[in-house]
Amino acid sequence: MQATVEDTRVELEDFEDVVSIHWQRIYRFVLASVRDTDAARTLTQDCFLRAHSRRERFRGDASVKTWLMKIAINLVHDFCRNRRHQFWRRLSASGVRTSDISDHLPDSAVSPEARASLKEQLQAIWQASRDLPDRQRTVFLLRFVEDMDLLEIAAATGMKEGTVKTHLFRAIHAIRERLGGMR
């Protein structure tokens, strides 16, 4: 354990490396959460600036990835609570088209019909995940976009594993209801 803590501290010493390793992951999570490229870039920068200024206080009881994600989650929640953001969110979907993500399907060899169906389902998941409560959306994105397991999600969100499971179940159930009979 001591070795791990030391490794993590050493990893933080070269902060430029930390930025280059984790930038895309943090940006992806923030963008999927706020769905605004400008806001996502600003929040990602804020995340690294905050991490840089607090790196002396990092105890190393979680991985750098989890620690950065924790900062990003807090920034996203603060941003989403901001009244101005709520206003703009209501006014327009802040630049990101809902069809955007379904334009990037995997290059698997499926029939055009299956591809069209998949595209439709991905759009529905994207739209449904936007309408989820903040915590459910966060847990859902961490699980299926960031591919984090339940314990990692618990460490990043500060929730208990059981609470993470409950939020994830609710998110999945709500999304499945939105998907309806789509096959």
């Binding site: 895309q24 999927a32 996502a40 990037h104 991905l122 976009v145």
Partner: peptide, 16 residues
């Protein structure tokens, strides 16, 4: 598939 699509889409965005 959803996670994969979001990752690919995100990687092409300005700021990624």
């Amino acid at each position: 598939e959803f996670g994969y699509s979001v990752s690919r889409w995100s990687a092409l965005q300005r700021g990624a």
